[in-house]
Measured scan of single mutants.
Amino acid sequence: MTVLPKDIPGDSLKVTVGTANGKPGDTVTVPVTFADVAKMKNVGTCNFYLGYDASLLEVVSVDAGPIVKNAAVNFSSSASNGTISFLFLDNTITDELITADGVFANIKFKLKSVTAKTTTPVTFKDGGAFGDGTMSKIASVTKTNGSVTIDP
């Protein structure tokens, strides 16, 4: 049996954390987006972790974005102690894959008090994996961190 590389060099799934701005007490939304989904033969499963400074940001909610089908079954998240974990699994293993680019999740943060303008990162942590529509590992994932700026 011969195994051929399935990824064209330079191609990767792009996962990007967005940015937001606000004043202390505001609730802002930071999107997590996927790009080049079709090039990577869709997404059938993924789990990953984001870190944030809990002294500056309070997670209000984490909701599935419009590219997630049947989110009540296929999407899960949790947030505590400065870490947000995400889990997606197409429970049907074929019919509810992520097949389009767009917003995977929206994180709502309540901004805490600061004395001066502060930009705090929302960054990928170690761990996690992504699988394509056949549940094979997506070897190349380009992750881009985001941030939230609090301006009193």
Rank of each mutant, 00 (worst) to 15 (best):
P121S: 08
V114G: 08
G127P: 02
V148C: 08
F124H: 04
T94N: 01
K110W: 00
K112M: 05
S80F: 12
L57G: 10
K39T: 11
V17Y: 07
V103N: 00
G10P: 13
P24Y: 12
N21V: 13
A35S: 10
D63F: 07
P24L: 12
T144Y: 07
T115R: 06
V59C: 08
V32P: 01
V43H: 05
A64D: 14
P31K: 12
S80R: 15
V62D: 05
A71P: 13
F86R: 00
F124W: 14
V62R: 07
T119C: 13
K137A: 01
G65D: 10
S55Q: 07
S136R: 08
F109K: 00
A71H: 11
K69E: 10
Y52A: 08
V28D: 07
S55M: 08
L13G: 04
T29Y: 11
G131F: 00
T92K: 05
T142Q: 07
D101T: 09
T142K: 09
L56C: 10
N91W: 03
P66M: 14
D132L: 00
T144Q: 06
F75M: 07
G10S: 11
E96W: 02
V59R: 09
G133R: 09
M40T: 12
T45P: 01
G44Y: 00
M135Q: 03
N70Y: 07
D101L: 03
N42P: 04
T149S: 15
V103M: 03
D36G: 13
L56A: 08
G131T: 01
T27I: 11
T123P: 07
T144L: 07
V59T: 08
P66Q: 10
T115N: 03
L89I: 03
A38C: 14
G133T: 02
V32K: 03
G128D: 02
N21F: 08
V43E: 02
A64N: 11
T2P: 10
E58R: 11
A64S: 11
D11W: 09
L57E: 10
V59Q: 11
V141C: 00
S113P: 05
V60F: 09
D132V: 03
N91Y: 15
G102D: 06
T27M: 13
G102P: 02
L13F: 06
F130R: 02
V73H: 03
S80N: 14
S136F: 15
T16G: 07
T27V: 10
D132C: 04
P66D: 13
V3T: 09
L97A: 15
T118G: 05
K69T: 10
T120G: 06
G146A: 06
V17A: 11
K112G: 02
V103C: 06
I107K: 00
L97F: 00
F86W: 01
N47Q: 01
I84F: 05
I84G: 01
V37L: 05
I150M: 13
M135F: 05
I98A: 04
T83K: 15
M40A: 08
G131V: 02
A116T: 08
V60M: 09
K23H: 09
G18R: 10
K23Q: 13
K125C: 02
K69N: 12
T149P: 15
A72L: 13
P31T: 12
I84A: 00
D53F: 10
T19H: 11
F130C: 04
L56I: 09
F88A: 01
K69R: 10
L50I: 08
P9W: 10
D36V: 13
I150H: 15
T92F: 00
A105S: 09
V15C: 14
D11I: 12
D26W: 09
N21L: 11
D7F: 14
T45N: 00
I67A: 14
L97E: 01
N145W: 03
G146D: 06
K23C: 14
K23I: 09
I8Q: 10
T29P: 12
K39W: 14
K69F: 11
I150V: 14
A64Y: 14
N106S: 04
F88Q: 00
K110Y: 02
T29H: 10
F130P: 02
K39E: 14
N42V: 08
A54T: 12
S61A: 12
N47M: 01
N145F: 07
S61P: 07
F86K: 03
T134E: 06
V17K: 01
D101R: 05
I84D: 02
V73I: 14
P5A: 09
N70S: 12
K23V: 11
F75R: 02
G133W: 06
L111C: 06
D53P: 13
G44H: 02
A20T: 11
Y52D: 04
G133C: 07
V68T: 10
D151C: 15
A20Q: 14
N74Y: 03
F34N: 09
T29E: 12
E96C: 00
D63N: 14
V148F: 04
N74L: 00
A72S: 13
A129W: 02
D132F: 02
A100V: 05
V68N: 07
A129Q: 00
T134W: 06
S136H: 08
T92H: 02
D126R: 15
K112W: 01
V148M: 06
M40R: 10
S12P: 11
T118E: 03
A100I: 06
V103K: 03
A64E: 08
K69H: 12
S12H: 13
T134D: 01
E58Y: 08
L111T: 05
K143S: 02
A38W: 08
P31E: 10
K41F: 14
T115A: 07
K117P: 04
D101W: 00
D151T: 15
D90S: 00
V30P: 02
I150K: 08
G128E: 04
S55H: 13
D7V: 13
T120C: 03
V122E: 06
K137G: 00
A20Y: 12
D126F: 15
L111A: 04
N74R: 00
A71C: 11
A64V: 07
V59N: 09
G22L: 07
S76Y: 09
V141M: 10
G102K: 01
S136Q: 02
T94D: 00
L56H: 13
T94M: 01
I138G: 03
K137W: 00
N74A: 03
F109W: 08
G22W: 08
I150G: 15
D101N: 09
D132N: 10
K137P: 01
N91G: 01
D7L: 12
F109R: 02
A100P: 05
D126E: 14
Y49Q: 00
D90N: 03
L56P: 07
V114C: 06
N91H: 07
F130E: 02
S140T: 10
S78C: 15
V60T: 11
L57Q: 13
D11C: 09
T2S: 14
N42I: 10
F124Y: 02
V141R: 03
D53G: 10
V62A: 11
T27P: 10
D151A: 15
A100C: 05
T144V: 05
F88R: 02
L87W: 03
T142R: 08
N91D: 15
F130Q: 01
V141K: 02
S147E: 08
D132E: 04
D90L: 00
A54G: 13
D7H: 13
M135G: 02
K23D: 12
F130L: 05
S147Y: 04
V37D: 11
L56D: 12
D7E: 14
D95L: 02
G82W: 15
Y49N: 01
P31F: 10
D36A: 13
I8V: 12
I93T: 02
D101P: 05
D151W: 15
F48M: 07
S12A: 11
T45I: 01
L13I: 09
N70K: 09
V32E: 06
K6E: 09
T29S: 11
V32C: 09
N145C: 03
D95V: 03
M135W: 01
T27D: 09
V59S: 09
V30E: 11
K41R: 11
V60L: 08
S12E: 13
N91F: 15
S55G: 13
K6R: 08
T92P: 06
A79G: 09
S140F: 05
V60G: 08
N42R: 12
N74F: 00
S140W: 02
K112E: 04
V59L: 12
G44E: 04
G65C: 08
N70T: 10
I107F: 05
F34S: 05
N47K: 03
T19D: 13
T115F: 07
T29A: 13
A105T: 13
T33I: 11
I8N: 11
V32I: 13
G44V: 12
V122L: 04
D132W: 03
N42H: 11
V32Y: 06
G18K: 12
A54L: 09
N106R: 05
T149D: 15
G102S: 04
K6Q: 11
I84L: 14
G128Y: 02
T134L: 04
D7N: 12
F75Q: 07
F124A: 02
I150P: 15
P24T: 11
T27F: 11
S113V: 06
V60C: 13
K69C: 15
T33N: 10
D101S: 14
S12R: 12
